[in-house]
Design a protein around this nucleic acid. Structure first.
Length: 524
DNA sequence: TTGTGTTTTATTGCCTCC
DNA sequence: GGAGGCAATAAAACACAA
């Protein structure tokens, strides 16, 4: 098993084009791809090329992967729409539908895409982290536009369309364009297809005017739901988007976590009615354009780490601890990013990657995920072309440890946060994959847990030798005591420093593995 | 260990747009 | 006609149960 996986990794790196036998992409590759997919569902040639180069894949493979990924999204969304059946009718949903309607997660503009479009489907798309995360990313990208251009921050279809037009026109950075192409500032998926973007994004006329008939049908369906509240050119839905009272959209179980762990920026009011992206302090000050060459490496690395951490915690902790551990996992051990929490990524791709089975699996965790309302939302463009080294690092990790399933573990908080029906979608039983992961995670539990510790205390190599149980206790202590924000920050800084000091060749995962090996040996 | 089902990857064909 | 994308299909890889 491990052997074969490792073999795959090796082979994948070397040549996937050598033989036509299908080869699984390494977890690292998948992770990177997923992450990238979250931000760029339709990568440009340049992006593909770079990605391919850095992942050791061919552009063809990259293109194919993205294509399949989009299909997968689509399929999942369809399934989700069918599965969700009757529940997605909340007003929140309706409001959000205003602007991004008719755009599937894959951005397909083909005539058949909306053939069976159902408002629920539209909504369901937002249930997937990737979409929403990307939207959050877009938020970050475009936040300034909403101020300078539209003036009206959060409006529905029409106003968002108009502002979107401007957003598009003002976006010069190809990457930004890429993002904006897909999403409206509302967080709803916008024309993903570049062509569609051209058509839709720049048309000042009403949304319906630029949409095809099929799309119109979808919009009509939404309108039906909206009833008299919907106005194409007026205040969106006739709804005043005033700040909701605290807790308006959060379940009692969500609130504590959010407040305690996600409100990094204490200055930012914790308003549940705004997306996590908006709440994310890093949104404004953390975002850097792609060309800034931010260390996406760190980002990716972090994801891997988080994934690993999450898995172990998830299995080891009881539910309430899970929540906290999850949060802790999001503490960004590897900074360079302005936001410590924002980097938590649920490879949304994978968030979207659950079929009915997976959704079932999610049900056991939605409580945890529900807690993580804010941590995920702060997406920003990570693509800076520095994936390679991290990928190598990932490649060193046993696929068993990572597994793709980690994506599922991180549920887009947006779901919970914006609409509760998302939880319903999660409550569909167990996924076999998750089971596997749990299995694997159990196996690597020590490793991961230690990995967490390593991340948190990387600065102290001695820590690695601390008996696992002790560290575990410490870790739990953190959870139980709900380490205050300042403490979290401190940890982050520590980890940051450690990262900075850590040789590039020194893989976190390696660290985790090595240390865990010691632990395992010691424990056994 | 084997059979079965699921997921992922690769290939191919078709469509749309430029 | 080429490029890009979607959809369908096949096959490999994988996981799980008996």
């Amino acid at each position: 098993m491990e052997e074969s996986s490792e073999v795959h990794s090796e082979e994948n790196k070397v040549s996937s084009e050598k033989d036509k036998k299908r080869r699984l992409k390494t977890p690292a590759q998948v992770m990177a791809l997923e992450r990238f997919y979250n931000e760029h569902k339709y990568p440009t040639e340049e992006m593909k090329s770079q990605l391919a180069e850095q992942l050791g894949l061919t552009e063809k493979q990259i293109s194919g992967w993205f294509c399949h990924r989009r299909l997968k999204d689509k399929k999942l969304l369809r399934d989700e729409a069918c599965a969700s059946g009757r529940q997605d009718r909340s007003s929140v949903v309706i409001q959000d539908r205003g602007s991004g309607l008719g755009q599937d997660s894959c951005g397909s503009t083909k005539h058949g895409d909306y053939r069976n479009i159902d408002p629920r489907e539209v909504e369901s798309r937002r249930l997937y982290g990737n979409d929403f995360q990307v939207s959050d990313l877009t938020y970050k990208h475009m936040s300034h536009y909403t101020e300078t251009v539209s003036g009206t921050d959060d409006t529905s279809s029409e106003s968002s369309s108009s502002s979107q037009d401007k957003l598009f026109s003002q976006t010069e950075d190809p990457y930004d364009v890429e993002n904006s192409r897909y999403l409206t500032h509302n967080g709803v998926i916008a024309p993903i297809n570049a062509k569609s973007a051209k058509i839709m994004g720049y048309k000042p006329s009403g949304y319906l005017k630029v949409k095809g008939e099929i799309e119109n049908a979808a919009i009509t369906a939404v309108k039906r739901q909206l009833g008299g509240h919907y106005r194409e050119d007026g205040p969106p839905l006739g709804v005043e988007f005033q700040p909701l009272p605290p807790g308006a959209f959060e379940s009692p179980i969500q609130k504590p976590v959010r407040e305690q762990y996600y409100d990094e920026d204490l200055s930012i009011p914790n308003s549940p009615d705004i997306s996590g992206a908006e709440r994310q302090p890093s949104l404004s000050n953390g975002y850097e354009p792609y060309n800034s060459k931010l260390s996406s490496q760190d980002l990716y690395m972090e994801e891997a780490n988080n994934s690993g951490m999450h898995g172990s915690h998830y299995q080891d902790k009881i539910s309430q601890l899970k929540q906290k551990s999850t949060v802790l996992n999001h503490v960004k051990p590897f900074p360079k990013q302005n936001s410590s929490l924002d980097l938590y990524e649920d490879s949304a791709g994978e968030t979207s990657v659950y079929n009915s089975k997976r959704n079932q699996r999610m049900s056991t965790k939605h409580g945890v995920e529900g807690m993580r309302i804010d941590s995920v939302t702060n997406h920003r463009g990570h693509y800076d072309g520095k994936i390679e080294s991290e990928m190598h690092d990932y490649a060193n990790v046993s696929p068993n440890v990572i597994q793709r399933s980690e994506y599922f573990k991180f549920k887009p908080p947006n779901l919970i946060h914006n609409r509760f029906e998302s939880l319903d979608t999660e409550e569909r039983g167990l996924s076999t994959r998750m089971k596997k992961e749990e299995k694997v995670n159990r196996k690597w539990k020590g490793i991961k847990e230690h990995g967490n510790q390593v991340k948190l205390k990387m600065h102290s190599t001695n820590d690695i030798k601390v008996p696992k149980r002790v560290r575990h206790d410490l870790l739990q202590q953190d959870y139980v005591t709900k380490a205050p924000f300042t403490e979290m920050q401190t940890r982050k800084f520590l980890s940051k420093g450690s990262v900075m000091e850590m040789p590039s060749s020194f893989s976190e995962d390696e660290t985790a593995e090595n240390s865990s090996s010691q632990e395992l040996g010691a424990s056994s």
